[in-house]
Write a protein that binds this DNA or RNA. Structure first.
Lengths: 251, 251
DNA sequence: TACGATAATTAGACTAGTCTAACTAGGAGG
DNA sequence: CCTCCTAGTTAGACTAGTCTAATTATCGTA
């Protein structure tokens, strides 16, 4: 009873162990070192010392070679981690339409690094989407845009009321990055490119709302030198064609 | 030239160092060990070996005691990390309305653990919100619900067209968790509680869409025992009052 | 009862990342 | 020219988490 439970920090790894223990007890009544090792993809030799740490933190009841039990405190921590996991997975899978497996992986990583406030906002977001008719409408439209047909400019065909003509107007009033002259600035509105090209552009930091400035264009118009976020990068014309920008006044 | 650049994994910490170097070069032209240490909040003695690792990975050009330069490959990695950071921060801050500082911290953590696919979906999400008029409408309404007045049942007052009456109907057709009888099941629709109580309920895993079953209610109606996700938890009546549920048929 | 299989633990090595403390290189001023 | 200051490095310790290999405990059964 005087066994002062060390209040040190619970690491990411220990949180994962707790989560695994919780799920094992829930699904199979008991949690054993072997099963934990299997689920977490590590050796039993790694689990043993982790259990000692959890025991020292007062999160599990553990006598060597016996079944592992959660203390109330351990149960509480596990439940919290699982709640974070759950809401993240739901957001990624059901709202952003990330593939099931990837959503699971991402949720598993992110759950350890996300603040309570952000979790709360996600919950509010779901509550909003469930309550407000606009919410489900938007969700439906976004789904059609992003998921059903990710390899086509989907909105042209799928999104009913607004989207087709809106996107058209959007394009009409604006330019492709490849059309800007040296010295002109623009704000990125939309990455039209798809697949690997799209990925490349995103990884170069060419995100919607980002400001770009054309520094120089090769005579043939092919390599185009840009300034983005204070750094210079060069694009092939084909790449620049995949980006819709809004021209900015050159001061 | 035969200096085969080791293709080992780039750790989270190394990514952060690269990001810092990128930003220093962008903002101050040069990156020095001292400044990196200061920004990252570590000692210079920790930076030195990290620079050696980055150099061995072919990501920076570094001769001891001289300025640090990014190689093209290093620049590319840094740009990608920064792009992830940027889009996450924007999502957290501008869409979920997480406090600026917390959004920054979360983005900084999550950027290392998020898949390319999820990033792509976030970009699509922003593109959608910017293009579709419904998008900005929803954004506006959600903002009023979650941010402007987080301490009140905001939607009752702020959200114009739909929300007030919708939320009312929502409540009318359904029950509070405290109203369920032992043996009854319900699906959580909404956490009405606010502040610390709300946080507690979320941390217990009582999220929207979660199924709960009332196991037992104390005679006075005060502690209520629930089954959630296969585990038992108990709630004070006050806590159970903060949860709106939809009664489920008891099979 | 003893044996073999299975489960769990321990010992010892390794990596990554941090720290403190001691040392070194290089420049500016007296 | 020497000295001192600053920036940077190195040495050595520590933590957390993993591994392999060897050891120990337990249980069921012949």
């Amino acid at each position: 009873m005087g066994h002062h439970t060390n209040d040190g920090p619970i690491t990411e790894s220990l949180e994962d162990y707790l989560e695994t223990i919780y799920e094992l007890i829930r699904d199979k009544q008991v949690a054993r070192v072997k099963d934990i090792a299997k689920i977490r993809g590590v050796r039993m030799a790694s689990v043993s010392p982790a259990m000692h740490r959890l025991r020292d933190l007062g999160l599990i009841v553990y006598n060597q070679r016996e079944y592992i039990q959660l203390t109330p405190k351990g149960e509480q921590v596990a439940r919290k981690v699982i709640a974070h996991h759950e809401i993240l997975r739901r957001f990624l899978r059901d709202f952003l339409h990330v593939d099931k497996k990837i959503a699971e992986q991402d949720a598993c990583q992110i759950e350890h690094h996300i603040s309570d406030q952000t979790i709360d906002r996600l919950v509010r977001f779901f509550e909003f989407m469930d309550t407000c008719p606009l919410g489900s409408q938007v969700q439906e439209m976004f789904k059609n845009c992003s998921e059903v047909n990710p390899e086509l400019p989907a909105c042209m065909e799928e999104c009913a009321r607004y989207d087709a003509q809106m996107r058209l107007e959007h394009e009409q009033g604006n330019s492709l990055l490849s059309e800007l002259e040296p010295g002109e600035k623009g704000k990125i509105l939309h990455i039209k490119a798809l697949g690997a090209l799209r990925q490349r552009l995103i990884d170069m930091g060419l995100l919607p709302q980002t400001m770009v400035e054309v520094e120089r264009v090769a005579p043939s118009g092919d390599p185009i030198w840009l300034k983005v976020r204070g750094f210079n990068i060069s694009l092939r014309k084909q790449e620049a064609n995949g980006i819709l920008v809004e021209r900015q006044a050159t001061a």
